[in-house]
Simulated scan of single mutants.
Amino acid sequence: MDQQKLMEYATIVAKLKMYPYFDIANYILMCIIVREDNHPQPGSGNNSPLFSRKHPLACWVASMVLCFAGSILGNFLVGEPVITPFKNHTDLLTATAVWYCINYSPFDIIYKMTKFSPIKWVVMCAKEVQRVHKIHHGVAYAFKAYPGAYVVIVILGVVKGAGSSLMRPVARLAAGIWKPHDKTEWLSPSFATKSSVVASIVFLCERLNMIPQLPHPTLYFTVVLFFIYFRLSALIVDIQDPFAPFENLFCNIFMGGVWDALKKATTKTDKKEDSKQYAKADKPKEDKKND
Rank of each mutant, 00 (worst) to 15 (best):
G148M: 01
Y146N: 03
G163K: 07
A140K: 10
H133L: 03
K160T: 09
I135H: 12
V139I: 13
Y146H: 09
Y146M: 01
V132C: 07
S164V: 05
K160S: 14
Y150E: 08
Y141G: 01
I155W: 08
Y150L: 08
A140H: 09
V152W: 07
S164P: 01
G161D: 11
V159K: 02
V151C: 12
G161N: 05
G161H: 04
G157E: 02
V152S: 10
K160C: 15
H136D: 08
H136V: 02
M167E: 05
I135C: 15
Y150F: 10
I155C: 13
F143A: 09
K134M: 08
L156Q: 14
G148V: 00
A162D: 04
K160D: 08
V152P: 01
V152H: 04
I135G: 07
A140T: 11
V159H: 06
G157N: 13
V152L: 08
V158E: 03
S165K: 09
K134D: 13
A140R: 11
K134H: 15
V154T: 06
H137E: 15
H136Q: 12
H137W: 13
L166N: 01
F143W: 12
A145W: 07
V139W: 04
G138W: 09
A142D: 05
A140M: 10
F143R: 04
K160P: 06
S165N: 15
L156M: 14
A145G: 00
I155M: 11
S165Q: 11
A140L: 02
P147E: 03
V154D: 05
S165C: 10
I135D: 13
Y146E: 00
Y146D: 03
A145D: 05
V132F: 03
K144P: 00
G157Q: 12
H136I: 04
A162F: 10
V152F: 03
Y141A: 11
S164E: 07
K144M: 03
V139G: 10
F143T: 04
K160N: 12
G157W: 06
G161W: 15
A162P: 08
H137A: 11
L156A: 04
V158A: 11
G138T: 06
I155Q: 04
H137F: 14
S165Y: 14
H136L: 05
H136F: 11
K134L: 14
V132I: 14
G138R: 05
V139K: 05
H137Y: 14
V139H: 10
V132E: 09
H133R: 05
S165P: 06
I153T: 14
V151Y: 13
A149N: 15
L166Y: 11
P147I: 00
A162C: 15
H133Y: 10
M167F: 10
A149V: 00
G163P: 10
V154M: 08
V154S: 03
I155H: 06
V154F: 04
H137R: 15
H137L: 13
V158D: 07
S165M: 13
Y150T: 02
V132A: 08
S165E: 15
L166T: 01
S164Q: 08
Y150P: 00
V154R: 06
V152I: 11
S164G: 07
V152A: 13
G163F: 07
K144Y: 01
H133A: 06
A145I: 00
A140W: 05
G157Y: 05
G157S: 07
L166Q: 06
K144C: 00
G163C: 03
M167R: 09
G138Y: 07
G157C: 09
H137G: 12
Y150D: 11
K160M: 15
